[in-house]
Design a protein around this nucleic acid. Sequence first.
DNA 1: CATGAATGAGTTTTCATTCAT
DNA 2: GATGAATGAAAACTCATTCAT
Lengths: 199, 199, 199, 199
Amino acid sequence: MAKVTQLYESIEPVSGKREAILNAALQLFTERGFHGTAMPLVAEQAGVGAGTIYRYFESKEALVNTLYQDWKDFQIAFIKDNVPTDIPLRERFRIHWNRLLEFATKYQVAFSFLELHFHAPYLDEKSRAIEQQGHIALVSFFQECLQQQVVKKLAPELLGSIVWGIYISVVKAGSAECFKITQAEIDQIEACCWEAIRL
Amino acid sequence: MAKVTQLYESIEPVSGKREAILNAALQLFTERGFHGTAMPLVAEQAGVGAGTIYRYFESKEALVNTLYQDWKDFQIAFIKDNVPTDIPLRERFRIHWNRLLEFATKYQVAFSFLELHFHAPYLDEKSRAIEQQGHIALVSFFQECLQQQVVKKLAPELLGSIVWGIYISVVKAGSAECFKITQAEIDQIEACCWEAIRL
Amino acid sequence: MAKVTQLYESIEPVSGKREAILNAALQLFTERGFHGTAMPLVAEQAGVGAGTIYRYFESKEALVNTLYQDWKDFQIAFIKDNVPTDIPLRERFRIHWNRLLEFATKYQVAFSFLELHFHAPYLDEKSRAIEQQGHIALVSFFQECLQQQVVKKLAPELLGSIVWGIYISVVKAGSAECFKITQAEIDQIEACCWEAIRL
Amino acid sequence: MAKVTQLYESIEPVSGKREAILNAALQLFTERGFHGTAMPLVAEQAGVGAGTIYRYFESKEALVNTLYQDWKDFQIAFIKDNVPTDIPLRERFRIHWNRLLEFATKYQVAFSFLELHFHAPYLDEKSRAIEQQGHIALVSFFQECLQQQVVKKLAPELLGSIVWGIYISVVKAGSAECFKITQAEIDQIEACCWEAIRL
DNA sequence: CATGAATGAGTTTTCATTCAT
DNA sequence: GATGAATGAAAACTCATTCAT
């Protein structure tokens, strides 16, 4: 997690340039899309020369893939983090849910970036592989739930998809300008999620 | 709906070219992305000259926006369609849900196209406006549900988002190569949806 | 031979652009070298847009290779041409020699181009293959000479190399500004060549 | 000659870096061409920093010109060297010829380098001037031959060109993979050379 | 002196769009 | 109307050279 913190806080001692480039690219790719963002623009935003980017990343595609993999890895780690196993599954689900929302709130741009680039044709094999691990934490959690017969008898991947789908859709709705979601609503939606899958 | 039928059956008598272009673009934009698809390729696939596209569409952006708007309009109409009002809300929900899945099944490419281009930076204001009407049918349905107090007390947009999110996520999971979803599972997921939102 | 004539006389009916590009490239690559010649310069000299070159040639390397192969093929054909077989070998040698010099005189730029690009690292396999056929006509002529025992007993390739080497070196010396070679001198050098190899 | 020995043996005490750079450049320019060789690559091969090259050479062009002039000077000196004047001209010619071949054999890379860069557009005036002195030794030898009327009455430059052309062509043929030249053949070719020019 | 990270001018190449036929 | 060859602006990327350390 320390690594990504640097992405945001840029405390790296020796050379902040790599991080500056990654941050500039994250923002611009999210705002304008991959193909809509020219490399000199990334360079300018990062405060480096155009050629400098190529000292750190082999190509534009390598840059977007690094970004995708770094953030997806971080997202997976962030979500998994800190969930005690000695509490009721219902409680654990709440913690999972809160972590999901915490990520979306703390790293809004990264959240949008990951969603926007899901299955993009310029993502390489490694990115594709990580993509599919997206809700692996949810899936293994639901395997446990299934064993203890607290959730409906459905493939754990499907249970994961249901919760993940609600998560993505609700966060998207919330970040669209139309209306703001309160904490109370988030808690209610968490309850909805559980109702959806519980036995 | 007649219009979209033409997109698929191409029975238009006078000039099939416009439809041919739209069909070619739909497929190519979905497979290769907007920026990854060169206009001459669209022309070739449509069996017309490169210049011909510009007799029907002002620009590449105009083409993708027309495509987006046509299909989003059609999707909205398709989903709304044929839902009787004189049956229990629970029954109506099931019909809504089935319509959603019918659309995704019948028009797989268009479904992917719409998902893929959600919030793309080259979509114009009109497309953005329609985007937000995405689950308007669901929203108004849930307004009725709320009045009759059969669903949880949440903003109808949020209820719509929850169901829509499950829908998108599950269809995506199903079209990914990893695993196939059976009709029985689809019915079970429909039940989950209802459990999520019912009072 | 008709094909190369067009390279020079540009009588091609439909599209002179391909020929214009080849002619411009021939001259510029010879004057400034391959890497020293920017594609827009070729385009300008050819009187076409920069993008047009890529309608006819896949890449800059494809252009230089086409040029090399076309001219080397033509050179080989030109030299072989019109040598009667019913005259003494000594006479035939004179005709060969004169053809060599005719080529160098008529197609000075192409002669320089071929010499300059011999074994260049951007030549592809096909060009390399043709390269080695360079003095194939001389080699087979010397095979005949060997059978009739009118030349020294040396590998025909070596006999070919000797004559070819004199040819290249003398033409180079003649085109260098320092001094001009007269027809009389050329005839004398032809005699030298024969003395070099005769028995 | 001592200078060039250093090029090869790198025994210079104080600063071997200049020699290391020259050696690296000689090899790389010959293998990959002038434009195909990036300066940092030269630096790496030489075991010095990229900036260090610019302490010894003003620019890439200055480097290649230094290389050209050093080696051409050395080649001229090497060829001239050690030819006694009190022996028959026919004998002296043999010695000259052997020196030529000795150079090509001992300094294969340098021989290729000189041939490859003949008349390159990035060579400066001084290099061009030396270029033309290439067979100056041969020329002055042939002036003597002409005075003693042992060779054909041709401009000494032309006589030089003939012998030089055979030399270059035969060495090239020998270093091409196609076939190897034996010492016996070399001696025979030397005889051919003399036959070519003798009265 | 030596370094090598950083640069930006310049390169090849692509592609949306036009317009003469 | 329809065409598709031609275009040139703009993109990704390279590399000789510099300069702070």
